[in-house]
Write a protein that binds this DNA or RNA. Structure first.
Length: 950
RNA sequence: GCCCAGGUGGCGGAAUUGGUAGACGCGCUGGAUUCAAAAUCCAGUUCUUCGGAGUGCGGGUUCGAUUCCCGCCCUGGGUACCA
């Protein structure tokens, strides 16, 4: 009987499902191991072969860990809120919930065919009310908390209110946008609205007017990580800045912990670097410069109390403070108009106008153009007392730091270029450094011409400068982060509704016992005509505070019935905590019980793409840290180890149409014509050879196509490696491959393609090699007639060696996640056992266990045939390596001359270096290469190599 | 520009601490089997002017470098007037 995967695979998948073989226990004496995949968004296109790559790797690892005796949590679910379903709804009127349900069914069907060992009882869907009830709950927790920089964690807002009532906010050290200092009396005197707004400035999620990235085409705001190269990530639409009242998340509060937390994680340097960059920490100091303007003299006419304007800057190089020869403000800086002298007023107005007309994007692309305008005003250097010019320039951004810089042209290239361009003095404060051509930006060397900093290296000068700045009371050592607070409102339908209603314009939380607040029905999924988000179309979207339920909008009286928030949450809300829900997916009383979270703890192995580095992976870390601070969970990093699988690229096929004709020319002859390359569906191309009949039938316009063939009569297509996409007709679904070769073959082939992390083109050419391997394996157990032929003799020594070498290699491969070499090692093993004609039961039984994580169906079948009636191989014991079997007595020494391997000599390993040298040098082969000369030196590394230096 | 990852036969890739470069598979070539084909099996397959040369290029360290160091080129990813 041949290897019949068509029967074997469905049989075992049914047994696994019926017996819930992969159900994870929440209480177990075994050690736990949590293997997680980034859950998919169920798109209408279904899975292509790229999707399962990571799932296969994680499944192999999960199965391996079970064999090692771990209690493995290996769940799967769906990130099922999202834009495509909504856009489909806009076009067709189909409710996104229905589309999503259909897509999930398709995904499940495809996933099931690959034989994953998921515990489906724990499935989560971010769009189900049972799930988003808890997303809403976490939102409420964030609303009820602020970040205390002294305790260095999130604290309840009630604690803050008590402090306000006691001492005002003068002693509060919190992450906040609150710019005023108030006393307890003042706090108590605030009206409700002021109190509310003051608290918003502290809450971890808060409502505020903020500049947002508005995408008119999508009709929604976007987070920074949803914008790529100035256009929306989805759809590539332009994005503009708009001031809107939006929910935000105070992720900035966690900037430092998000940064330092990276150190303990087993992630790639590249993802850690992306996050470090995104957080963008810079250490330096603030410095205040007093402005010296003509109005200072005007002071004489008025009172001395008239406030002198002060410009505060942030600098990472306080050590270069004596090199400051001018200042530059952002055009939008609030002091600009106040300090500008009358003779420059019109030019300044002109410059500001031009700057405001430039979009953010233009300003970025126009980097080389140096522009600026003198305000005519001067600042006073805090240490030298010199007057220094104040300019405005759009290279200074109002949104970063203080929107003003102290310009040190000798030490900063942009300042240098600016000074050269406008002919401003460049002071050299570096000892023996030539700055005639460019600024000196290295942080080495000594400081000169700098009074009390003279002769110091950068590090000491930095320290001393900050001390001096602080002593003078003109600034403090300070740390800046580039990380912005995250906008949390989306003007969309298909997302989590906020559990928020508005009373007198102030946001109020709906009590937890009434959650979830379920998404209302709407007739249209588009924004309303007056520009409200899609939820503005709902008729039943008001909160009745007496009956505590959602009621019709007609009942809104703003006394007891109030309007509910119209925005929904962004895509990353649900995915920021889903890994916790798997631990306790059906809990109706908590997002996860403390007990289960304490047992499963964080994810041991997380597999997914690195494209989420600045989005999901940062937000999930933020929420985890918050939930940890509040004592809901006992760990503050979600994903301990992460592997980022590379994308599988498609291999597109092309036909070449001779321009203005219906003639298609084969690849090698296309140079003779003017042609246009057209994508052709890869399903009608086999090894680059086009099925011309199928091609003609594929489209009406190709019906009468004519061809110019190769000499052998074939039409050969061109090819190119591109991202897999429907429009390029290069999508390969796993389904057809499973049908043709079986899931075990697909699993092993995807692993065999190359290292998991690498980007690689998809190519089915090699799949037969893997399939043949499985057939060859099958033949080890069966004779030509298909009889099962294992013997129970004492195994041959050679076969034992082969087995244990494989045990060793496979263990090593799995421990370093080298799945591709794992497959190779199975091939080597089966090749050797075939050669040895090994059909020994004990050897082959161990081999089957080794193979079971990679090819579970065939392994189960053979395991059963061998006579194991326990029902599944999944909990067998990973074979134990016996090193003694691998110990060799001889070694074939490679002998090199000047580093070039020439020949080999078989020698006992027991020989000493001297003995090896003697044996080798007296061999006939050696004499030939010595050509009668004496070697300069002979290097012998016992058990490794002999190298003769001539 | 800066940061990160990578560059090895016709192709995907292997070589884990510096020690036989090209494992394993595909493809290709020849042969066996067959009426024939598929399948299977066997042999070969880095290049070569047969001296050698060879892991993107040029240097260096070393008895010995795909591996370590310096400089450069290319590909992919991230990021950017960030003070």
């Amino acid at each position: 009987m041949e290897y019949n995967f068509q029967d074997i695979e469905p049989k075992w998948r049914k047994i696994w499902a019926d017996n819930k073989t992969f159900k994870a226990e929440d209480n177990s004496s075994k050690p736990k191991y949590y293997v997680l995949d980034m859950f998919p968004y169920p798109s209408g296109a279904g899975l292509h072969v790229g999707h399962p790559l990571g799932y296969i790797a994680s499944d192999i690892y999960a199965r391996y860990k079970r064999l090692l005796g771990f209690n493995v949590l290996h769940p799967m679910g769906y990130d099922s809120f999202g834009l495509p379903a909504e856009q489909y709804a806009i076009q067709t009127g189909q409710h996104p919930a229905i589309t999503t349900e259909q897509n999930i069914e398709r995904y499940r069907d495809q996933l099931d065919k690959i034989g994953f060992s998921f515990d489906w009882d724990r499935e989560v869907r971010t769009s189900s009310p049972e799930y988003y009830k808890w997303t809403q709950w976490i939102f409420k927790q964030l609303f009820d908390c602020y970040y205390d920089n002294t305790t260095n964690k999130a604290e309840r807002i009630s604690k803050l209110i008590s402090e306000f009532e006691l001492n005002g906010n003068k002693n509060v050290n919190a992450c906040s946008d609150c710019e005023i200092i108030f006393t307890a009396e003042e706090w108590k005197a605030f009206d409700l609205k002021t109190k509310d707004e003051t608290l918003q400035a502290y809450r971890l999620t808060f409502l505020a007017d903020s500049w947002v990235n508005w995408c008119p085409a999508l009709g929604t705001v976007l987070a920074n990580d949803e914008i790529v190269n100035g256009v929306s990530e989805r759809g590539g639409h332009p994005v503009e800045q708009k001031l809107m009242r939006q929910w935000s998340m105070r992720i900035k509060a966690y900037a430092e912990r998000l940064l330092t937390g990276l150190e303990g994680l087993d992630w790639t340097d590249s993802v850690k670097d992306i996050q470090r960059n995104w957080i963008g920490k810079s250490v330096g100091s603030s410095v205040k410069f007093e402005v010296f303007t003509s109005r200072t003299s005007v002071n004489n006419m008025g009172t001395e109390a008239l406030e002198v304007p002060v410009i505060e800057v942030f600098t990472t190089r306080p050590d270069t403070v004596f090199g400051v020869s001018f200042m530059v403000l952002a055009p939008e800086h609030p002091l600009v108009d106040q300090i500008t002298t009358p003779e420059f007023a019109s030019q300044i107005a002109e410059y500001k106008k031009n700057a405001s007309l430039k979009s953010e994007r233009d300003r970025q692309s126009d980097v080389k153009n140096i522009t600026g305008q003198n305000t005519g005003a001067f600042a006073i250097h805090p240490f030298t007392g010199e007057k220094i010019q104040i300019w405005i320039g759009d290279y200074v951004l109002v949104s970063y730091g203080t929107g003003a810089v102290m310009a040190v042209p000798c030490g900063d290239q942009r300042d240098y270029d600016f000074a050269k361009h406008f002919n401003i003095e460049i002071k050299n404060i570096f000892e023996n450094i030539d700055i005639s051509e460019a600024a000196y930006t290295e942080k080495s060397g000594k400081i000169a011409n700098s009074d009390f900093l003279n002769g110091l290296d950068v590090k000491s000068a930095m320290k001393k400068a900050i001390e001096a700045i602080e002593a003078k009371g003109i600034g403090t050592g300070k740390t800046n982060y580039r990380l912005r607070d995250a906008v949390f409102s989306r003007q969309r339908y298909w997302g989590e509704p906020f559990p928020v209603y508005y009373q007198d314009g102030l946001p109020k939380m709906i009590p937890t016992i009434y959650l979830p607040i379920v998404l209302p029905e709407v007739e249209k999924y588009l924004p309303t005509e007056d520009g409200k988000p899609p939820l503005g179309n709902a008729y039943e979207w008001a909160w009745d505070t007496v009956d505590n339920q959602i009621v019709g909008n007609v009942n809104i009286d703003n006394k007891t019935v109030f309007p509910i928030e119209l925005n929904t949450m962004p895509g990353w809300a649900g995915s920021s905590w889903y890994f916790l829900r798997y631990m306790d997916s059906s809990n109706e009383d908590a997002f996860v019980s403390k007990e289960k979270a304490d047992y499963w703890k964080n994810v041991d192995l997380y597999i997914g793409g690195s494209e989420h580095a600045t989005g999901h992976l940062l937000y999930a870390r933020f929420w985890t840290k918050f939930l940890f601070d509040q004592g809901f969970i006992s760990f503050d990093e979600p994903f301990q180890k992460m592997i980022n699988q590379g994308m599988i690229l498609g291999r597109s096929s092309f036909v070449y149409r001779v321009n203005d004709t219906n003639i298609f020319v084969s690849s090698s002859k296309k140079g003779e014509f003017q042609t246009t390359a057209l994508h052709v569906d890869i399903s009608i191309v086999d090894n680059d050879k086009l099925d011309t009949v199928a091609f003609k039938n594929s489209r009406e316009e190709y019906k009468n196509a004519e061809f110019i063939f190769e000499e052998n009569g074939d039409y050969i297509c061109g090819h190119e490696v591109e991202k897999m996409s429907k429009s390029k007709y290069n999508v390969q679904t796993p389904d057809e491959l499973v049908e043709k070769f079986g899931a075990d073959t697909l699993r092993m082939y995807e692993m065999f393609l190359g290292p998991l992390e690498q980007f690689k083109p998809w190519d089915t050419k090699g799949i037969t090699g893997v399939h043949n391997f499985l057939r060859k394996l099958w033949r080890l157990f069966h004779d030509k007639e298909g009889n099962f032929i294992l013997t129970s003799d004492v195994p041959e020594k050679e076969s034992l060696k082969t087995l244990h070498r494989t045990i060793k290699k496979l263990g090593e491969d799995l421990n370093r996640f080298s799945f591709n070499t794992g497959v190779s090692n199975f091939m080597i093993c089966v090749n050797e056992l075939t050669e040895q004609k090994c059909n020994n039961r004990s050897i082959l039984q161990d081999l089957v266990i080794l193979l079971s994580p990679y090819a579970p169906h065939i392994a189960e079948e053979l395991w059963e045939k061998i006579g194991n009636d326990k029902g599944t191989i999944s909990f067998a014991t990973f074979p134990k390596l016996d090193e003694s079997i691998l110990v060799e007595s001889n070694f074939e020494y490679p002998v090199s001359f000047n580093g070039k391997m020439r020949f080999k000599v078989q020698l006992p390993l027991a020989l000493s270096a001297q003995e090896v040298e003697k044996e080798v040098m007296s061999s006939a082969e050696a004499l030939k290469y010595l050509e009668g000369k004496d070697p300069k030196k002979v290097i012998v590394v016992p058990g490794r190599i002999v190298n003769v230096v001539m």
